[in-house]
Structures are given as C-alpha cells and as structure tokens.
Simulated assay, not measured.
Amino acid sequence: MSATATGRAAAPPLLEVRDLQVWLPGRGGARLHALRGLDLTVERGERLALIGESGSGKTLTALAIMGLLPEGAEVRGHVALDGRALLTLDEDGWCGLRGRRVAMVFQEPLTALNPLQRVVAQVMEPIRLHGLAPDRDAARARAMALLDRVGLDERQASAYPHELSGGQRQRALIAMALAAAPDLLIADEPTTALDARLRVQVLDLLRELVAERGMGLLLISHDLALTARRVDRIAILYGGRVMEQGAASALLDHPRHPYTQALWAARPRLGGGRDQTLHPLRGNVPALAQLGDGCPFSSRCPLATARCAVDPPSFDGRLACWEVAS
C-alpha cells in the first residue's frame, strides 16, 4: 500500500538528522572526525535531551544544525526542518531561518547577550528583523509579554545584562530565542552557571513553553539525573556517536549501554547523605586526535573486547554496542 493510500502522506519530523558527520581542521593540515554519523529526530511538541560529557560533540551537533560551524569545518549528511534540507542553504537562506524557524539558547548568557543594549531591546531585535510587528511600540509590547512570561519585570527588562543575576540573564536569553516564535528551540547547557534551585526552575520553564507553543526542544546537557525527568526522549552521545537512544523513562529504568549505566551510577542519590558512596566514571573523553576507528568508549568500557577497539558498532535506532544486544 502506498504512503498516500489513506489520502495523506506521513508528515516528516520537525527536525530530522541522518548520518551527520563533521570534520574539523587540526594541526598540520589534519582533518579531525568530530561527529561520526549521528541520527536524531525531534517532533513538534517533543523534548529530546542530548546527553554526554564535555567533549562528546553535543554543542558541535547544535552548531551544525544551526549552520554555525567554525570556519574550515566540513559537514556531510542530511539535516532537515519540516522536510526542508538545511545543509545546502546559502547565507541568505540561513539568515531567514535562524531565529524565525529555529533558535538557540547559548551556553553562557553573559557572553551571548550584548552588554551595550538593554534586555528589552535585544528581545525586540528578532521581532523587528523578521517583520513580526508593525512598529516599534508593537515590537516592544510583544517583547515585554515574553519577558513577563519568563519571569522578568519592567525593571529587569530595562536593565543591561551585567545588572541581572545569572538566572535572570538565562531567562532573558530564553525570551530572546522565543521572540520570533520558532518551531524548534535548541538549548545548549542552559543551566550550567546556575545553582540547583535555578536549574530546576529553568528546565521547568522550558518544559512549560514547549507545551504551550507546540514547538520542538533539543536540550543539550551533561547532567543526566537533572534532565532526564523533564524530557520525552534521551540520546546519549559519546565521541561523536550516539551510544543509546530511547524514551526517557525506559532508558532510565533499564539503561543498556555501559556508558549510560556509568553516567546513571555516577549521580549523587537524593537522601544519601554525605557518606554515600559515589561511583565516578573514570578516565576522560578522548581528544579528537586520539579517537580510533572502533567504539569511542572502548578504552573506558568494562565490557570491551578486542573487536570494540577496531570495529565501530552500528547504531540500530536504540543502541550501538557489540556486547549488549539491542
């Protein structure tokens, strides 16, 4: 039976990433293979968390989706928004897309915000740039409504970024990203510089905004324990590859990949007290120049065999591991 047998073809995912590969320039003309065949999808109204340690390739994935890779980077694969291929866009095409269809909350708001402009002016900018308000007064009204929604008042909206706290700056950056009503929001470590209480508040705010607006959310984090209960699905990234992916509840209840198990075991337990035994994940994510052809986690994996070091396991949509059956 054809895809249109029932009268309508299946709609594509909001975001579709297939076999995404990125090479970065290295010393002496070397080409460093940073992303190695990523497959991801995000539907409208869905929250996907991309989890991994620093150096796993999380931010690079976001920059590739946004068309913001550093100079000299080479990218291959397929990235599409609502079925529209993105990697072939020219700069004019990207400028029409960024902010309007896909927006990003960057990792450090103090450097992402313009120190010379008041917060409300920065939220107004994408509204006016994309012609979403007839005049300056309407743009300001729309910006103030957004700032109010993320918990900032008139005084804070009229402040400069350095006059706000870390949590307030993060909220301002979220309002700025939402100003043009994007279909997809990418939040890159939005809680890194915040204390535990503010981290929960920001993540809960993002969850509420996704539900209200029906947009998709790609949430990038290194904190599996904090993020997992606030998303629908999780993708575990290591060494530029997806190690495991699935529904958040199922993945946490039964983590299968040794890396996922190690991340989950390393978290502090609520109520465990100061004397609780922690299980740190020993070693470090290998540098790009140190990555071989096999599974990138093989040097730290308790199940690794000789095959793991030379033969990369294929990702079947759920798992990439030779020693654990999907």
Rank of each mutant, 00 (worst) to 15 (best):
L63S: 07
L173F: 06
P313W: 05
G96M: 05
T192G: 07
G294R: 12
E108P: 00
G57K: 01
A320V: 05
G246H: 11
A3C: 12
D92F: 08
P134H: 05
A193L: 13
A193H: 03
L198I: 12
E208C: 15
L35E: 06
Q117W: 14
A177W: 15
D293V: 12
A112I: 05
M104N: 08
C321D: 10
I65P: 04
E71C: 02
R199M: 13
L252Q: 10
R274F: 15
R27D: 14
V242W: 01
L319P: 00
H78Y: 07
R140E: 13
R197D: 12
L24G: 04
A10Y: 07
P255I: 12
S326H: 08
D135Q: 07
G96W: 04
L81A: 04
L68Q: 09
A306Q: 14
R171P: 15
S314A: 14
V22A: 02
A304R: 00
D253P: 01
L205A: 08
A141H: 08
V120S: 03
A175H: 14
R229V: 13
G99Q: 10
A179M: 05
Q156F: 08
W322G: 07
L81I: 01
D148Y: 06
P134L: 08
A225S: 04
G246K: 06
R213Q: 09
A262T: 04
S165E: 11
R8S: 09
H78M: 11
E125G: 13
P312L: 03
I65G: 00
G26A: 13
L185H: 10
V120T: 14
L278A: 08
S56V: 02
E163P: 07
N114F: 04
H78D: 08
Y259N: 03
V79I: 09
W322R: 01
S158Y: 03
D39Q: 06
H130S: 04
Y259L: 02
A157I: 11
P12I: 10
A325G: 08
C295H: 15
L110G: 03
